[in-house]
């Protein structure tokens, strides 16, 4: 405890095994933080990617996509979280947290899928149709592969937003690394607050870099195709 810059307290907190194990130990909280993030992204992706692809493919509901960007900034996540818990009941607090987190992940994912499809050169789509591809084949073999770098870019933004918002989960009785921050602030245990924050930062940067790498590789795989188009 004590001063923010107290490195001794920082080391003492880390070297105390009791802070690592148990229901609210650091290890458990890290796993919970990652699980909440991954599940929320999965739920959001299952909804957002088909919707984004559909809008990009048909051109229907484009205004919806434009409004989406500003909407995502207008959602008060904490208010939504409490509203969902009150609405669904405390028995479903996990579901409430997942739904609230999925909501903030939807806009970047939809936008990523949508813009991935709309930026495909019309000549490619036309030649696919000219070869006799059905709509499903066009989507499956042309649009999805070509849209994937943009789609993964959307996932990258969604990940950053979700992984940093999971911090609110302890307010409604779940864990995650926000627990260490909220408990540490109340106890004025700044070593605990610092460790929890640092772990969140490391997870965020690592995850963002990994998704960025994936995006880069997906794009690189498509490069020969670009060359084909502009020899």
């Amino acid at each position: 405890m004590g001063n923010v810059g107290d490195l001794g307290a920082f080391g003492a907190w880390l070297s105390d095994g009791a802070n690592w194990t148990g229901r609210y130990g650091l290890l458990n909280l890290i796993v919970e933080h990652l699980a909440l993030t991954a599940l929320s992204l999965l739920i959001a992706a299952l909804i957002a990617i088909p919707v984004g692809l559909f809008i990009g493919h048909t051109g229907r509901g484009e205004i919806f996509v434009v409004g989406l960007g500003s909407l995502s900034r207008a959602i008060p996540t904490m208010g939504l979280l409490f509203a969902l818990v009150l609405l669904l009941g405390v028995e479903f607090r996990e579901l409430s947290v997942l739904l609230a987190l999925s909501t903030i992940a939807l806009p970047p994912l939809i936008a990523g899928a949508y813009s991935g499809v709309t930026t495909i050169p019309p000549s490619i789509r036309d030649s696919a149709t000219a070869q006799g591809m059905t709509t499903w084949q066009l989507v499956r073999h042309v649009e999805v592969p070509l849209a994937s770098p943009s789609l993964i870019g959307g996932l990258r933004i969604a990940f950053i937003q979700v992984v940093s918002t999971v911090v609110l989960a302890p307010l409604v009785g779940l864990g995650g690394l926000g627990f260490g921050i909220i408990q540490g602030l109340a106890l004025r245990n700044y070593a605990q607050v610092t460790v929890s924050s640092l772990v969140i930062i490391v997870i965020t940067i690592t995850g963002e870099r990994l998704i960025g790498f994936w995006q880069h590789r997906t794009k690189a795989r498509l490069t020969p195709l670009d060359k084909l188009e502009n020899p």
Partner: peptide
């Protein structure tokens, strides 16, 4: 006792039997 951090939903959790 085993502890459960129920945060701001403590009273609701008690009434719900959690």
């Amino acid at each position: 006792v085993s502890f459960q951090a129920t945060g701001d939903t403590t009273v609701d959790a008690l009434v719900a039997g959690q």
